[in-house]
Nucleic acid binder design. Structure first.
Length: 508
DNA sequence: AGTTATGCTTC
DNA sequence: CTCGTCC
DNA sequence: GGACGAGGAAGCATAACT
């Protein structure tokens, strides 16, 4: 008898109900202890909402349209769920939508109400049990009786928690610790935290490496012999899409190697807009509208040697010696003024900002550490609230997502939405304030989500921070905000004095 | 053959 | 991608 | 400090619909 889906559902419920992380871990570890080797990847995939088969093309709309009577008694095994997901994932071509739907419906028809709800949550990314991969790593360690650090390390180097769990529980500590970086296999990329300024970021370090932050797509570049593999930040294999980058990679010295870099569209003088980089990237490189160029900023493995535990300074020296011509603009300095001058130069070149890194730090794969800090300019504007959407999940009952307008003469044109930057107190306040302003929508406000939207008179001013603007075909002003977040409500200001669409346009 | 709906992935 | 909240 | 979950914009792919 294999593990039942009902066992997984019961554990998920226990995890969701337990506020303390330790209790979540205990519940997960107990379940892992009951799974056999083959089931581990499946169970982990279900419970962290990241299936073994990746995304299978079933989302909110499909799940919501299923109206199938649940059964009273649980009978499905997790291996059967896995099999159904496999079938859905690998079916394509004419008529495939129907076949995929049939497989899903058959699964639903055999499920209890609780199982249907759980599977639906998994497929729509709505688990909300307060435990995803981070907690699961700890649970795997507990179930296997090994240190969390070992599991974390194995997961980052293998890029796969399910596989790591199989090794930890099945083969033991020694096998787990022998997982190593292997050119050709993706590894979790090191992530950065944010600093408000270069001076802030440098305050933490004796000496800093400062590098241009390019507004493109993170790319992990592997080469072993003639074998080349290219992975995105989320470890998706995009090798086939980027023949030019593959050719470049084959031309570099020092294989086997693993590099960390950024892929960016480059025009005659300045970098292209991110939109154009992304467009070219997703439609297959060579035939795109812009030239995609790889810039490298770190080396994890070079000349067949692991570098991740060596200081950044050493990694960069090795990188520079081997392939200096593909390394992006970099300086090493202890002087804040020098770093700021470099930042100004980079921004002047049309780039996004700079990264400030501790010169002595190892490559912390898969971690968001303080050794790397990103510094990007922030722009602030006074915009006007045109409406708000009711929130979901922990924001249920609050007006959450604000519809933002810029002034255009006496009118207002919508330029984006945001739900970010709001504290619970601000949500409470704006919910009451916006209800008072409820009105018919003004012109130029999309009404596709009218059912969950409260439209308002354009009166409440909000201070909005953005990273920049981008072209838009969905908003009437032809422009949309990038990474908008609320800094403050400004009921003391009047809408007639808010910022204009022309001011925003000047940023394009 | 063109348009629409849905899902996915980058930031 | 950003931010606030919670453990 | 780590982990989670709130939900954004653009652009592409695929299959169904018209």
């Amino acid at each position: 008898m294999g593990l039942g889906l009902a066992d997984v559902v019961a554990t998920a419920a226990a995890v969701a109900d337990a506020p303390a992380r330790n209790d979540k871990v205990a519940a997960l570890a107990e379940l892992l202890g009951r799974a056999d080797r083959r089931e581990l990847s499946i169970v982990i995939g279900l419970l962290v909402g990241d299936l073994r088969q990746g995304r299978i093309g079933v989302g909110w709309s499909t799940v919501g349209s299923l109206d199938i009577e649940p059964v009273g008694e649980a009978s499905i095994e997790v291996s059967e769920v896995d099999h159904a997901f496999d079938e859905i994932a690998f079916t394509s071509g004419d008529g495939s939508a129907q076949r995929r739907h049939d497989v899903l419906a058959a699964l639903w028809a055999r499920s209890t109400a609780a199982e249907q709800a759980f599977l639906g949550a998994v497929l729509t990314g709505g688990l909300r049990q307060g435990a995803l991969e981070g907690v699961m790593v700890t649970a795997v360690a507990k179930a296997a009786g090994v240190p969390v650090a070992s599991v974390r390390r194995g997961t980052m180097l293998s890029g796969d928690l399910g596989e790591t769990a199989q090794i930890a529980l099945g083969d033991g500590r020694a096998a787990l610790d022998s997982i190593g970086l292997r050119p050709g296999r993706a590894i979790g990329p090191m992530l950065a935290s944010t600093s408000a300024s270069v001076a802030d970021a440098m305050g933490e370090f004796d000496t800093a490496v400062v590098q241009a932050k390019l507004d493109g797509i993170r790319l992990q570049v592997h080469r072993s012999g003639d074998g080349v593999r290219l992975y995105t930040r989320n470890l998706n294999d995009v090798t086939e899409r980027l023949p030019d980058v593959v050719a470049l990679t084959r031309s570099l010295d020092g294989e086997p190697f693993v590099l960390d870099g950024e892929l960016i569209g480059v025009g005659s003088e300045s970098p292209e807009l991110f939109q154009d980089t992304a467009s070219t990237f997703s439609s297959g490189g060579g035939s795109g509208r812009v030239d995609l160029v790889l810039s490298v900023f770190d080396a994890l493995h070079l000349d067949g040697e692991d570098l991740i535990d060596l200081p950044l300074e050493t990694r960069l020296a090795r990188l520079e010696a081997r392939m200096g011509h593909v390394v992006l603009p970099t300086i090493t300095t202890a002087d804040v003024a020098e770093a700021e001058a470099f930042e100004a130069e980079i921004l002047d070149g049309g780039h996004e900002g700079v990264m400030v890194k501790d010169v002595s730090s190892p490559y912390a794969a898969g971690r968001r550490g303080k050794a790397w800090r990103k510094v990007k300019p922030v722009h602030t504007f006074d915009l006007v609230v045109l409406g708000a959407e009711w929130g979901h999940g922990r924001r249920t009952g609050w007006l959450s997502n604000l519809l933002l307008g810029a002034r255009d003469g006496d009118d207002f044109v919508m330029v984006g939405k945001t739900f970010k930057g709001l504290t619970d107190a601000m949500l409470e306040w704006q919910t009451a304030a916006l209800k008072e302003l409820e009105a018919e929508p003004v012109d130029g406000v999309p009404q596709d989500r009218a059912a969950i939207t409260v439209f308002t008179r354009p009166e409440l001013v909000v201070e909005i921070a953005i990273d920049g603007v981008q072209r838009s075909t969905t908003y009437p002003g032809g422009l949309a905000l990038r990474f908008a977040r609320v800094k403050a409500h400004r009921p003391d200001k009047i809408a007639a004095e808010s910022d204009t669409i022309d001011t925003l346009r000047s940023m394009l």
